[in-house]
Design a protein around this nucleic acid. Structure first.
Lengths: 145, 145
DNA sequence: TAACAATATATCGTGTACGACATAATCCGT
DNA sequence: ACGGATTATGTCGTACACGATATATTGTTA
C-alpha cells in the first residue's frame, strides 16, 4: 500500500482523534452545568463580551449560522441567553446572556485547569505548549477562508 | 472575567477549530470519491489490513460501534465494503473491501500530500512537525480509556 | 421609487458522535 | 447441560457540523 496513506503517517487523523477525545473529556465537567462543548464555547465568547450579533459570534467561533442557530435556540430554551431581533437592522439577531447565563461563569471557572491536567498528564514546559499552540494557530490561519 | 476562561487562552478550542477546518479541507478532495472523512479513515484502516472485525476497526480508529456501525452501513450501501456475520464467533461482523473499495486507493493516493500543502502553507521543518505529532500522540494517550 | 442585488439569519437534509439501551451469541461455573 | 454473566454488535435519541436553500430586510440604482 501507499506509505502516505498509512494511518500512522496521518497528522489529520491524530488531530481528529485528539479533538474528539478532548470533547469527551469535557463532558463530565460540563454535564453538571447542563452544557455541551459547543454551548460552552458560545458562553466563553459571551462572557468576554455580552450582547453580540449571531454573525459576530460566528466569526469569533468560526462557526456558520447553520450550526450556530440551533445551538443558540437550545441555549435560549434552557434559559442561558435571549435572542432579540432587529434593533437597528431588522435582519440581525442580538444574543445576550440571561442572569443564569452570567452566573454560570462562576461555576465554570475551574474547568480549564481541570481539563489541562487531564490531557497534559505530567505538566509540560511552557515552551512546548507554546509551540503546540503556535502550530494550531498557523494551521487555523492557513485553513480559514 | 476569569483570565483562564478567555477563548484566546484555550488550547482545546484551537484543537476543536483546527480539526473542523481540516475536515472541511478534505471535503472537496473526498467528494469526487463519494466519501466523507470518517468513511475515508475506515478505508485507510482497511487498505492497511483488509478483513477486520468491527471491534478491531473501532480500536484502530478509536471509535465505538454506535458511531462505526452507521458509517459501515452507508459504505456497504455504497458498495465499498461488505459485512459478513458470524465466521468463527456468531457475534462478530467481519468488514471486507469490495473490488470498488480496493480500487479507490489508487484515486486517493495524492490526497495526503495535497492536504498537507493546504494546512502547512510554507513547508515546515520536519522537527517542528515531529514535535506537533508528538504532542498530539501524548494527548491522545492521556485521554484514551 | 420600483425592482433588484446584497446581507443577516434561519431552515432543511444528510452524516457523524456518543451515551444509554437492546439483542444475540458465547462462555462458564455448577 | 443449563442459566446467568460476558462479549460483539446494533439501535435509539439528542446534539452537533455543514452544504444548499429559503426568508426577510436593507441598500442601490436606473
Amino acid at each position: 500500500m501507499y506509505e502516505q496513506l498509512k494511518l500512522d503517517n496521518q497528522v489529520c487523523f491524530r488531530l481528529y482523534t485528539a479533538s474528539r477525545l478532548v470533547t469527551q473529556a469535557y463532558r463530565p465537567l460540563l454535564e453538571p452545568l447542563g452544557l455541551t462543548y459547543p454551548q460552552y464555547i458560545v458562553l466563553l465568547a459571551l462572557w468576554e463580551k455580552d450582547n453580540q450579533l449571531v454573525g459576530e459570534l460566528g466569526q469569533r467561533l468560526m462557526l456558520d449560522t447553520n450550526t450556530l442557530t440551533p445551538i443558540l435556540q437550545r441555549m435560549e430554551r434552557n434559559g442561558l441567553i435571549v435572542r432579540t431581533r432587529g434593533i437597528a437592522d431588522g435582519r440581525q439577531t442580538l444574543v445576550s446572556l440571561t442572569r443564569d447565563g452570567v452566573h454560570l461563569e462562576e461555576r465554570a471557572k475551574d474547568i480549564p485547569a481541570c481539563l489541562t491536567r487531564t490531557w497534559q498528564g505530567e505538566p509540560m514546559p511552557n515552551e512546548q505548549i507554546a509551540g503546540f499552540i503556535g502550530m494550531l494557530d498557523s494551521m487555523i490561519n492557513n485553513l480559514k477562508k
